[in-house]
Amino acid sequence: MIEFLANWLAFTPVFAVPLLLATLGLIVNERAGVINLGAEGMMLCGALAGVACYIEFGESTAVGMTAAAFAGLLIAFLFAFVVVVLRADQVVTGITIVFFGAGLTGLIGLRWNDTAIAGFRKLDLGFLSEIPFFGKVVFAQDAMVYLTIPIAFGVWYFLFRTRAGLNLRAVGENPQAADAAGIAVDAYRFCAVAAGGVLCGMAGGYLALAAAKIWVNEMTHGRGWIAIALVIFARWMPGRAVLGALLFGGIEALIPRIFAAGWPVPQYFLQMTPFLATLAVLVWVGVAGKRRSAAPGALGLPYVREDRW
């Protein structure tokens, strides 16, 4: 039982990190007032770029993650151009980005399809990793797991402890007020979307390089959507996003553990649990938080300075 628990907890971060990176990216997006439903597509592009560059350029996870971030950035530029500059409908464009990402990766990913890779390795921190239970859970993760902690802290620090973060939140809450205060609304939104794209791309890259260690079509399998739901669960706060990601990472990590333990649970029903759990969380937030929503005031609304409506 202890071993089961240790294995489960040790695997949780690998599943939690991609959710957390994507959720953080989406929080930055949405805090600036842009709802990005295209996370899934950005993650797919990140995953493919990560695997492809990992294979082609010396099997380096650093190269892979950089490429993943860059791929996410490129898709985010496209998304930002359409919704921030051209002010197109954010919902339609976001959904389209998902299928754009799926189509694009499906088309150019053929070469790297189903090639197993070594990917991220667990770090060996000497005697720390040897500690029973805790060593395995806390001190034998890969580098990205440890790197994600400062990233989460950084996002929080940026949003709540810097002037640029205040400006960004102002743009998402009330762009009219931000504009009158001399804040460049479009520029903030564009950069927020770009930053969100980088994080979503990294989430996809990590998923491919650490969790799956392979590229297959549509491998993100709904995690982008779970991240979008986690933003609501986290009430747009990075701290709560960590909790949410650990919770859902835990659920995802449990599934292969249960298979490995050989318990007679119907496989496909087990696979449904992350989605049903996400839905349950959304309904719970809806039932509990109806009175005061924490959503940014101008979420999803394009801003036009001379709009008199």
Binding site: T93, T96, F99, G103, L104, L107, N217
Partner: peptide, 18 residues
């Protein structure tokens, strides 16, 4: 791959939305 159809649809929708 079939993904091509998806990609073309996405591009057309995006352009019309834009």
């Amino acid at each position: 791959p079939q993904a091509l159809v998806s990609l073309i649809q996405a591009i057309v929708v995006m352009c019309v939305a834009a």
